[in-house]
Structure formats: structure tokens, C-alpha cells
């Protein structure tokens, strides 16, 4: 009984995290996909990437966020999607930290293209660290309940 409860709690936690993080990534990708011009300017504002990679990054990053988010919600290629989302969040954390250290003011561009309030970068960093912890929890889960991977037996592949 105890084991069953523990297993139920584990599966429920991972499922909730998957739906939350996946849904959030889908939501965050939509405004970027709808306005690549504005998003490329946001990336330029970070002053990290070399000039020739800015447009490429502005085009593919929202697409990757969208697909990884959808897959995570559906539970398709769960571990890979969680890995990609973890990598994305890691990149955001490094970029935010780097610019905080340099004292550069910039717009986050995370959920909208509205100007970020002064001093908000530290809050964004904390938020991304929490999301990163969630993504790692999903990545290292043993099983994914209510997922397409589980339905089609894809979880067994590689085990």
C-alpha cells in the first residue's frame, strides 16, 4: 500500500510538472513565432551571440520550444524533450547571469516583448532556476504516466 501510494505520488508529480512546463514552453514560443523581427532584436539586446547567428537563433529557438513543449505535454519522446528544455533553460540562465554580471540592461523577451522592469533580471534568474529544477525532475523520472511513450511502449526502447 505504501509503495503504491509512493508510486502514485511520484507519477502524479512528474505528470503535473510535465503539463506545467510543457504548456509554459508552448505559450512562451507563440509570441516569438508570430514576430521574428521583434525576437531577433531581443536576442541582439543580449549582446552575446555573434552577429551572423542572431537571425538563425531567432528563427529556430521558438520552434524548438514549441515542439519540446508539445511533446512534453503529450508525453511523446519525454526524456528527449525534457533534455532539450533543460538545455534551453541552462542557456537562458547562463545568458541572464552573464548580463547581470556585466550590468547590461536588456529585455527578457520570455513571455512578451514588453520592456523588462529595472532589476527584474534577478527575479527572472530565480524563476529560470526553479524551472530548470523542474525539467531535471522530469528528465530523471523512472516512468512517464499518461504519456504517448507509455501508451506505445516506447519507454521500453533502450531499456
Amino acid at each position: 500500500m505504501r509503495n503504491r501510494l509512493s508510486s502514485f505520488f511520484h507519477h502524479s508529480t512528474v505528470l503535473v510538472l510535465r503539463l506545467f512546463l510543457g504548456g509554459m514552453f508552448v505559450y512562451a514560443s507563440l509570441h516569438k513565432l508570430s514576430d521574428p523581427v521583434a525576437f531577433s532584436k531581443i536576442i541582439y539586446g543580449y549582446k552575446i551571440l555573434p552577429a551572423f547567428t542572431i537571425n538563425l537563433f531567432a528563427i529556430v529557438l521558438p520552434g524548438i520550444e514549441l515542439i519540446a513543449g508539445i511533446f512534453l505535454v503529450l508525453g511523446f519522446l519525454c526524456r528527449g524533450s525534457a533534455l532539450v528544455i533543460s538545455l534551453c533553460l541552462w542557456v537562458f540562465i547562463v545568458a541572464l547571469t552573464y548580463n547581470l554580471m556585466r550590468g547590461i540592461e536588456f529585455d527578457c523577451g520570455c513571455f512578451s516583448f514588453a520592456h523588462t522592469k529595472p532589476g527584474a533580471a534577478a527575479d527572472l534568474l530565480v524563476r529560470d532556476l526553479v524551472f530548470f529544477a523542474m525539467a531535471l525532475r522530469i528528465l530523471f523520472a523512472r516512468r512517464y504516466a499518461c504519456s504517448l511513450d507509455w501508451l506505445f511502449g516506447l519507454e521500453k526502447w533502450g531499456n
Binding site: 528563427i59 514549441l66 528527449g80 524533450s81
Partner: peptide, 16 residues
Amino acid sequence: SLYEAMVVIIAGCFAG
């Protein structure tokens, strides 16, 4: 996991 991540990234690039 790496194979899966590669599929997600390729599909994402295509979508973008």
C-alpha cells in the same frame, strides 16, 4: 535520451 533530443531539435528547427 540524446537520440530523442536530436529528433526534438530537428523537428523544432523545421517548425521554426
